[in-house]
Amino acid sequence: MSIARDFTKRRFWTRFATQTLASIGFFAIFAGVTDALFPDLLPPVGKVIAVAVAALSLGFGLYQSWPRPVQMNYSSPNTEIHVVEGDLFEQEGNVVIGMTTTFDTEIPHVIDELGVQAQLLTRIYRNDNRALDDALCAALEDHPVARRFKPEDRKQGKQIAYPLGAVATIMPAVRKLYFCVAYTEMNNRNEARGSVDGIWRSLNNVWDEVRAKGNGDPISIAVIGGGQARISQYFPAQDSIRFIALSYMFASRKEKIASRLNIVVEKRAVRNLDMLELQAFLKSLRPS
């Protein structure tokens, strides 16, 4: 993930100034004590020492504030969280796929062809709608039905809706699970609507499923809340990442979910993120 943009953030320069001044203060105290004990020692080399202190302090400040990959290791629970720029479907381990309560797969009239669930169809199932629908149907067999659309609803696509937060676990490849979670509700006009509360409950459900079936393998999830959920106006990517991480850590403290969580960000969204702030947030999730 590119770190050059972090140099334009106020957080970087604030931390750089703080660490540099702290280093200068340390050397100043050391020099003051040395001068008090050995008054004739410093004056002959005073200018050289001043230049050395300035260089060392600037170097220390830069080292301490230098942008790094956004990730954090935790000991309780024993897990990691990484914020990754890239492709959700190229990550190691299992994958969370955000879907609607109808688990529709038809593109482009019902499902956005650029969305994650459309990519599940086109890239993993090679546009085989029937194979994907059969896998979802089998996975949802024991789930209660929340609603059956009527002919007068004139809904395109699937006619059965499951409860918000329902999880369908499918395995189109060996040792790679896809946890399809309904975090938005679909109406008869094929409009998907989501809420912060609904996404929180859906995440809790999917973490339970990952814990039960994921064998502790890494799990990857895309930034959620925009697109079809239609809540990006008050749930932007920066907040979505914090939201996912917080939900994961709360659930992990009850019982370990996975060895690592990858929160995957598309390249077009990365430029709007404050990576230093995200790193500080992940650090704050460590037990006090």
Rank of each mutant, 00 (worst) to 15 (best):
A4V: 10
W13D: 07
L21H: 15
L21N: 15
S23K: 10
I29F: 07
A36C: 05
F38G: 09
D40I: 13
K47Q: 06
V48D: 12
V51Y: 11
A55M: 13
L58K: 13
G61I: 05
L62D: 11
Y74F: 14
D87W: 06
D87R: 07
F89A: 02
M99R: 06
D104V: 04
I111K: 01
E113D: 04
G115D: 04
I124V: 06
D128A: 11
N129I: 13
D133G: 09
A135C: 06
A138S: 11
A139I: 01
D142A: 13
H143A: 11
H143K: 15
V145M: 02
R147Q: 10
F149W: 10
P151A: 04
Q156N: 13
G157H: 00
K158A: 15
A161W: 00
G165S: 08
G165A: 12
A168F: 03
T169D: 05
I170K: 00
I170N: 00
R175C: 11
K176G: 03
V181K: 01
V181C: 04
N187M: 06
N188D: 15
I199L: 14
S202I: 05
L203G: 02
K213E: 04
D217K: 14
D217P: 12
I219G: 00
A222C: 08
G225N: 08
I231Y: 04
Q233I: 13
A237F: 01
L246K: 14
Y248V: 09
M249W: 03
F250H: 07
A251N: 03
A251E: 03
K254D: 11
K254W: 06
A258P: 04
N262R: 11
I263H: 01
K267L: 08
R268F: 04
L282C: 05
S288T: 09
